Amino acid sequence: MPLTYLFNPENDLALAADVDRYTAPAPIRRLRADLALLPMWIASPGSRIIAPADDAEFLDFCKSVIDGLDGIGIYDGEPSQAMPWGWSRSVRNELLRAGVECNADDAMLSQLRRLSSRQTTVDVLQRLDAKGVDIPAMPKVCHSLAEAAAAVEEFDAAVLKMPWSSSGRGVARVDNSFFPTYENWVSGIVRRQGFVVCEPYLDKLQDFAMEFYVEGGQAAFKGYSVFFNNQQMSYDHAVVASTAELRRRLLMFVDASTLDIVQTAVTECLEELLPESYSGYVGVDMMVYRKSGGALAVNPCVEVNLRTTMGVVSSALGDNVVHSGCEGVMRVLYHKDKAALEQFKSTLQPPRFSDRRLSGGTLLLAPITSESRYTATLTIV
């Protein structure tokens, strides 16, 4: 049975709400509408994408210039199996109403919700530590304001994180002297979501992730993503190149054995933790950081994303779309009004292709309309 993909970037917020019908904030609804076709870049042959019928023209253009998109189309009600960006009670009900078959029952969704919280990051780090993988100071799961205050005092420079949040929201950099400013925020998180995670602030040199596809209890490594966050700790852009090239970039910081040990151990952890019924992507965010003595190391689990991520997309683009020897940048940008959108469009250089791969200019990753406020692009640099 073919797969039907759905871009539902609000999923982390829907998990936090844990309701049958979740309504996302307006900006995220706009993001979802504008980038509805984004899953086409990771879709399997013959699959369908839930997107407006008008997006078929853009899809046909991409098929005409790039290999690997044959058989992918807009969902029109034919029997298919659901493959959302992420799973929640809300998205399951939405997909069922659209006529898409869903194998996610209540027990599975409850388990996935629990595993999607930042408690899983701590669980994975504990397992990695037991396997002999070098990790930074262990994060603390704090169930009260007093526990959070003690954790921040211990780390001095710390990062506080909500159990469920999205795109850098719910993350705060806190020094011990400024913790009183965040007391109401922490108390509210504990009241609504049960706990807050406190981890040491590290001297970061490079964000990256390992991307996996999990099916039948087996986790398969799919590639790396090398990305950069903005000052609000939200995703800004990613380097787009082949898996081999991204690995070479990471080897500028750490040796090959470190990457291989981390990959093997994280694969084992995912297979130990995830239910056999889960089929889908998992992105494990990591970080190259500098220890107090100056040595470079890898934090092997900054966060476990039990869903598709922008890193999954950028990794696939590097292996399947960008021309060999080229490097690109993937960006998701917000434009405050039509004038800003038109100004942005005027700066774009048309895409150029060699051997049916992108070799120059900028390729839109989803169509732009007059109503668009978010754009996703891949630019060769």
Rank of each mutant, 00 (worst) to 15 (best):
G280Y: 01
A316D: 08
S372G: 15
H335M: 09
L31D: 05
I189S: 07
A157W: 13
A256D: 13
M252W: 07
G293C: 04
E272W: 04
R29F: 10
M233S: 15
L109F: 02
A151E: 06
F221D: 06
I380K: 02
G170W: 08
V186C: 11
M286E: 12
S90Y: 03
R127V: 04
T347D: 07
T369M: 10
P39E: 00
T362C: 07
T181Y: 09
I28C: 04
A43S: 15
R21S: 14
A295N: 02
S372P: 14
F58R: 10
S257C: 15
V298A: 05
G280D: 01
E94N: 09
I261T: 15
D34S: 11
D134I: 10
S117D: 06
E101M: 14
L274S: 02
M83R: 02
P84L: 01
G216E: 08
W164S: 03
G311D: 03
V19Q: 10
L317N: 02
Q119E: 11
N103K: 05
E215S: 14
G294A: 04
G132T: 05
F58L: 11
D175H: 11
T309Q: 06
A16Y: 02
G325I: 15
T347E: 13
M310W: 08
D175R: 14
T309K: 13
V159W: 01
M83W: 01
W41L: 08
Q193I: 01
S90R: 05
G188H: 01
F253E: 13
V226N: 05
S315D: 12
S370I: 14
Q218E: 11
P84E: 04
L341A: 03
A150T: 06
V322N: 02
D285R: 11
V322T: 01
V332C: 09
Q263T: 00
D337A: 12
Q232T: 13
F7Y: 12
L358I: 01
S117R: 07
V214A: 05
H335W: 02
A24S: 08
D67S: 12
T267V: 08
A158H: 09
A209Y: 02
L274Q: 03
V186S: 07
L96S: 06
N176E: 13
V124Q: 10
L115D: 00
L125G: 03
D156C: 12
C198L: 15
A158S: 15
G73D: 14
A295M: 03
P350D: 01
L274E: 03
Y213L: 13
I42K: 08
V186I: 15
I42M: 13
A157L: 15
P275H: 00
S116R: 04
Q231M: 13
G311L: 09
R307S: 00
A238E: 06
M210V: 08
V100E: 06
W164P: 14
N103H: 15
A376S: 11
R48Q: 01
L15C: 05
F228W: 10
R356Q: 02
F344P: 15
D236E: 10
L270T: 07
D156K: 14
S144G: 08
T243H: 02
T377H: 00
A256Y: 10
K204F: 09
H335N: 04
F212T: 13
S242N: 00
A17T: 09
T379M: 06
V122D: 01
G223R: 06
